[in-house]
Design a protein around this nucleic acid. Structure first.
Length: 268
DNA sequence: AATTGTTTCAACCGCGGCCCC
DNA sequence: AGGGGCCGCGGTTGAAACAAT
């Protein structure tokens, strides 16, 4: 496979970004977008490789990035999603608006793993539920009854291959979980995943049935919602900016909520 | 105040996979 | 069909910040 040469092979700068570089990158992306990361640094006059620019933008400079410490709710969400998805940080990040995969990965390694290790269960639980509507589990004390992600999957390879097909959807639970009734009468989903799910192509209708919403209506809402188009047009004066629609999590959350008939966005 | 140990997190690296020719 | 170009992802690194002695 063709691989982009790394920075030192072409004599580009590495290491921490300066405020001046940040400003150059921000200005360029605001004007022209980032349809081609590889060409961007040359066009912007940055002595960086495209990967470095992309990482800087996605993890630090993007305007919708939420700074500051993670709330307890966010941490719990990460723990729950990690239990379901394993180390699929980008998929987890998709459920946490304003948070990046890198940030979540760091928080996991620095805080959450320790937190969970301190609360290792005496008896591992077999399943954990997740509420599709507000992303809370049946077990509200996440640290009291922790079971490792590996409990739900036989090997880490279970997440590879066709799992990527699912990650593009990632509405709330991208697994074939079985609904159960929780004590607060909300519907919960146990992450019991049949291996065949990951091997088969994604069935939107089956998935929408599972989550009790209509994928067709979701699709209609997406087409009827003008924000995506406006966003593209407003930023595309020079034929550049491409980060429309799919990267706007607020938009997608809204789409999902509308399609599923909910009146409020999920709490995070 | 100086030194050492620990933690944090931005950034790098390499791989897998998608897309296009 | 298959090879090259590129993007995105996840693992890892290392410097800076902080805490302990």
């Amino acid at each position: 496979m063709g691989r982009a040469p790394c920075c030192d092979k072409v004599g580009l700068k590495k290491g921490p970004w300066t405020p001046e570089e940040d400003q150059v990158l921000i200005n360029f992306i605001h004007l022209y977008g980032h349809s081609n990361w590889r060409a961007l640094p040359k066009q912007a006059g940055l002595l960086r490789c495209g990967k470095s620019c992309r990482l800087r933008w996605i993890n630090y400079l993007k305007p919708d990035i939420k700074r500051g410490n993670f709330s307890r709710e966010e941490e719990d969400t990460i723990i729950q999603l990690h239990e379901m998805m394993g180390n699929r940080w980008s998929a987890i990040a998709a459920r946490l608006p304003g948070r990046t995969d890198n940030e979540i990965k760091n928080v996991w390694h620095t805080h959450l793993k320790k937190r969970l290790n301190q609360n290792q269960p005496k008896k591992p639980r077999k399943t954990r539920g997740i509420n599709v509507n507000n992303i809370t589990t049946t077990t509200t004390t996440a640290e009291s009854n922790w079971s490792s992600p590996q409990e739900s999957y036989t090997t880490s390879e279970d997440f590879s291959s066709s799992a990527n097909e699912v990650s593009s959807v990632d509405l709330s639970t991208n697994d074939t979980a079985a609904p159960t009734q929780s004590s607060d009468n909300s519907m919960d989903y146990n992450p019991i995943i049949d291996d065949s799910f990951w091997e088969s192509s994604f069935d939107y209708n089956a998935f929408s049935e599972l989550l009790d919403f209509d994928y067709e209506s979701l699709h209609e809402v997406k087409q009827e919602t003008p924000e995506t188009v406006d966003y593209c047009e407003n930023n595309n004066n020079n034929g550049g900016l491409q980060y429309c629609g799919d990267e706007n999590m607020e938009f997608w959350l809204d789409v999902f909520v509308q399609a599923s008939g909910e009146s409020e966005l999920p709490e995070f």
